[in-house]
Nucleic acid binder design. Structure first.
Lengths: 329, 329
DNA sequence: TCCAGCAACTTGAACGATCCAATCCTGCCT
DNA sequence: AGGCAGGATTGGATCGTTCAAGTTGCTGGA
């Protein structure tokens, strides 16, 4: 391993003081052009890179942002976080930040982890995914003045903090509109139990689209927890009852289950899922796709704006999903 | 935000010197029991946590390990890395390490990133996934004396560095044996082009199993790049030619494609995939499952053993996969 | 009695970067 | 020539921790 290149090494090599090297890096405008170039040259020649630990000690900033990685619960939806993470890491890198991972089994433990990460590593900020009604995590972070952005709206108060989200209602509305345009009227919806912000939002889009077309949505939807078997059961029940001619689902898991019901019972019923997971792509399921890379990039933008002091008040971004047409609709 | 609690704060509170507090944390055996308890008490009372940046400056160790996060290429296989990452982060946390992410588009850029991560953040070690024949990354890391572990064997020289891998050959052999036990003799294999260590290994398991059963494998396999369409094409070709009565595939993508061929042509041909992806679970595809959580844990074990100085020579772990039986075989 | 030897703890210095305040130039004006 | 403004450059202090060297107090052997 080559001997360490510090700011002093660069200074000696460029025949200036440490401070001048520091100024070239942090306040280039106050250094004479000629000197600046000489220092820059020395930096590249020696391959100097500022030691983050030392910088952090003085400035209190680590240029590190933390993201929680969740266990792949369902399996199908796992890749959503995966893609988001990739986008986040990539955008953060170009903004000069690095991404750190952590795990937590519940909200309380997660808060303990915040405390640990903040005092041990002096993390600059957090990106949270999957926030819920009255989330204790966002409250804690806000109370401690820690910069953070959530991927997912705060359903109580949209102004409480910065967030990025995808307009789920617009997605299901587009899916429903697509089916309406194909001549369907009785379009069913299989979603999650009322109470989750995301689920209610997706149901609202379907309802809005139906009502706008003059179709009464009552009786045309079912509520169930996420899962393939659950989707199949709900679809069977719905088909036997309200007899819809097409189905919109709140997730690809539910859609996959619904598809199995549909195939067994009435082959002509189209099904549309949500999230455009690899499974959807693999089996040709039409699905609503979230712009995850874009969402991740916006999260980093919002967070770095706060960290650099550019942005003081909460800001938000609502992105539009797109419908990916395949065999099933 | 509460004022910072440093080692000096704890020292004052416990009426000892800074060094004694440090000793309680790093070398408890040289401190008198009574003093140790008093210091411990002060630590918990004040909620003290050692500042990693300061520690790192002195020791040169960051308690940070880096993992590359790859873009979800195919989509189907993406979740494999996702599960691996989760396991890695979790095990690392219990060992007192944190996980940092980075991206890189090619090997050369990845090496540049190593350099950057090492000199800026003084990373302790790396976990690499998907190593190839004559990988320049491992060579660079080894040459620079950087501790690392790969998830995936070095196919040239098994002793060149520490690694964890899953016995792919055993997986395809088990899949083949399962089909043999069900009475099949002409069992086909759809795999990747010769040259990739992982692909050759998986093919070898199938071949070995067939030969052991007295079946001549010649003509019963096809080589194609990964993908659903490719799998379908290869399966169609194989079924038309050598007419196998069952198929083993090197990936779930290929198996999914093969399944589509099989369904269209000859309904009775069983298909077995590899990786037990969410897609396999969703469509009921029998598949070989890799113990990813276990693999991640072993990676952390191997890496921390090197970092703590316990292990000096390369060590390896070869894990056994398991066959997950579903509808298709 | 004296001091070696040891255990338990304290003190000073160092890691590498940044910030602050002081000093040094340089050119320009009177 | 002298003075001065303004910007470029310098030295020293600092962040929180650990390492190395030092201090204290005590025991026990000659």
């Amino acid at each position: 391993m080559a001997e360490k290149v510090t700011i002093a090494t660069v200074a000696r090599h460029a025949r200036v003081s440490r401070q001048t090297v520091s100024n070239v890096l942090n306040a280039p405008h106050i250094v004479r052009e000629e000197t600046r170039l000489r220092v820059q040259e020395a930096i590249t020649a020696l391959g100097y890179r500022a030691n983050q630990a030392a910088r952090q000690m003085r400035t209190g900033r680590s240029r590190l942002i933390a993201v929680r990685i969740e266990p792949t619960r369902d399996g199908i939806n796992g890749s959503v976080l995966d893609r988001f993470l990739h986008g986040l890491t990539e955008t953060a890198e170009t903004a000069g930040y690095r991404t750190m991972l952590y795990t937590a089994t519940d909200d309380q433990r997660e808060i303990v982890t915040y405390d640990d990460l903040l005092s041990s590593y002096e993390l600059d900020g957090f990106v949270l995914t999957g926030t819920d009604h009255g989330d204790p995590r966002t409250a804690w972070l806000a109370a401690h003045g820690v910069p953070f952005v959530t991927f997912g709206r705060p359903w109580d108060d949209p102004e409480s903090h910065s967030w990025v989200d995808v307009d789920g209602a617009a997605g299901t509305a587009a899916a429903t509109a697509h089916l309406l345009a194909a001549g369907h009227r009785r379009i069913g919806f299989i979603g999650w139990p009322v109470g989750s912000g995301v689920g209610d939002d997706r149901r609202a889009g379907w309802r809005r689209s139906l009502v706008a077309a003059g179709v009464e949505p009552a009786g045309l939807d079912r509520q169930t927890v996420d899962g393939i078997a659950e989707g199949e059961r709900a679809a069977r029940d719905l088909l036997a009852g309200a007899a819809p001619t097409a189905l919109v689902c709140a997730s690809d898991s539910l859609a996959l289950g619904a598809l199995q019901s549909v195939r067994a019972d009435v082959p002509a019923v189209p099904v549309i899922g949500f999230d455009d997971t690899p499974v959807a792509a693999a089996i040709g399921l039409t699905s609503v796709s979230q712009p995850l890379g874009e969402a991740a990039a916006r999260c980093v933008d919002l967070l770095t704006a706060v960290l650099d002091g550019t942005q003081r008040t909460p800001d938000h971004v609502l992105l539009q999903p797109s419908l990916v047409l395949r065999h099933t609709a």
